[in-house]
Simulated scan of single mutants.
Amino acid sequence: MSPLVARAQAMKSYRLGYLALLPGEDTTLAKPLLQRLQELGYRKGMNMILEYRSADGRAERLPQLAAELVRAGPDVLIAGYGTLAPKAAIAATSSIPIVFTSVGDPVGAGLIASLSQPGANATGLSAQASDITAKRLQFLADLIPGKKLVAVLGNPDTPYTALALREVTTAAASMGQPLAVFEARTVDQLPTAIHEATISGAVSMLVLEDPVLLGAKQETIELLAKARLPAIYGVRDYVEAGGLVSYGTDQRQMGRRAAEYVDKILKGASPANLPVEQPTKFELVINLKAAKALGLEVPPSLLARADEVIE
């Protein structure tokens, strides 16, 4: 018997809840978290029961699913990608510890009192980084130089979008880069938003990450390819699915860190006193096949900076 299994068997049994907005999150964005929990000695069927609920992209279902998880009595409630799942979890319980895995602006969204002292029953990982949106804009300028119009696609109902828009507007003003913002609150609004961006004269697009839009990543990629509009994304999943380039936080690292927060709380730490961690690792991923399809030559200087190149 391995030492890890022996340790798992010796530990008391824990019940964890996981609330997801996106479909299939347990096999995608949550996978690194679950793997790290296993490394830490938590094993399903041995000393861990995992209650998983997904809204399958339908945000209106989150309050009901959060209430179901609370009734199951988990030791820790994990809130998946984005802000909406943590918001529903926090509204459902003020006593069960909550660990959120990737929130753009947890203070601005009213989830916690401050990053250093969350203050209640929730803590976790923030995807907020002050200059990340500006860097994406610069990478687009490296790909398509000449101060040509850049379209920004975002969901205005997402708290992170407001923050990201302020940052990208400030960065564009300092660069002398013209911008135009196009909104898509639902998947159905994507074709119109991308068509309007194309006819506006935009030559590239910055896609602001959002759970609703991420759930429609394949449709977004296909619409942009059809419009021949090069785009940069905040999540590498887009590039793995055929998008051009992404620059953002390493979601795998964040998932693993979230598992470590769960472990700390199960061992007695209070979420009120566990500072929310901001990202320290970022990755630039470039898809050369997508670049070729768009007729783009990726500058060698940009390729040299890439953490991964998909050919």
Rank of each mutant, 00 (worst) to 15 (best):
Asp237His: 11
Val245Ser: 05
Ala171Pro: 00
Ala85Val: 06
Ala290Ser: 10
Lys135Thr: 09
Asp131Ser: 12
Val5Glu: 12
Pro279Tyr: 13
Ala164Asn: 10
Asp75Lys: 01
Ala55Val: 01
Ser174Val: 09
Met1Glu: 13
Ile221Ala: 03
Lys281Asn: 11
Gln218Leu: 12
Val212Glu: 03
Asp56Asn: 15
Ile144Gly: 01
Lys44Ile: 10
Gln189Gly: 14
Leu143Asn: 02
Lys226Arg: 14
Thr192Ala: 14
Ala293Val: 10
Ala304Ser: 13
Glu60Ser: 06
Thr158Tyr: 01
Val107Arg: 04
Lys267His: 12
His195Cys: 07
Asp105Ala: 11
Ala241Tyr: 05
Tyr160Ser: 10
Ala141Arg: 13
Pro275Gly: 09
Ile78Asn: 00
Glu283Ile: 02
Ser94Asp: 15
Ser270Ile: 06
Met11Pro: 01
Leu115Ile: 14
Ala164Val: 12
Val70Gln: 11
Ala129Leu: 13
Asp263Thr: 03
Arg252Trp: 09
Leu21Asn: 06
Leu111Val: 04
Leu143Ile: 07
Ala109Val: 08
Pro191Asp: 08
Ala59His: 08
Leu153Asp: 01
Arg228Thr: 13
Leu149Trp: 05
Pro3Cys: 05
Lys12Asn: 12
Tyr261His: 10
Met254Cys: 06
Ala66Gln: 06
Arg53Val: 03
Ile144Trp: 07
Tyr233Met: 03
Leu65Lys: 02
Glu68Tyr: 09
Met1Asn: 14
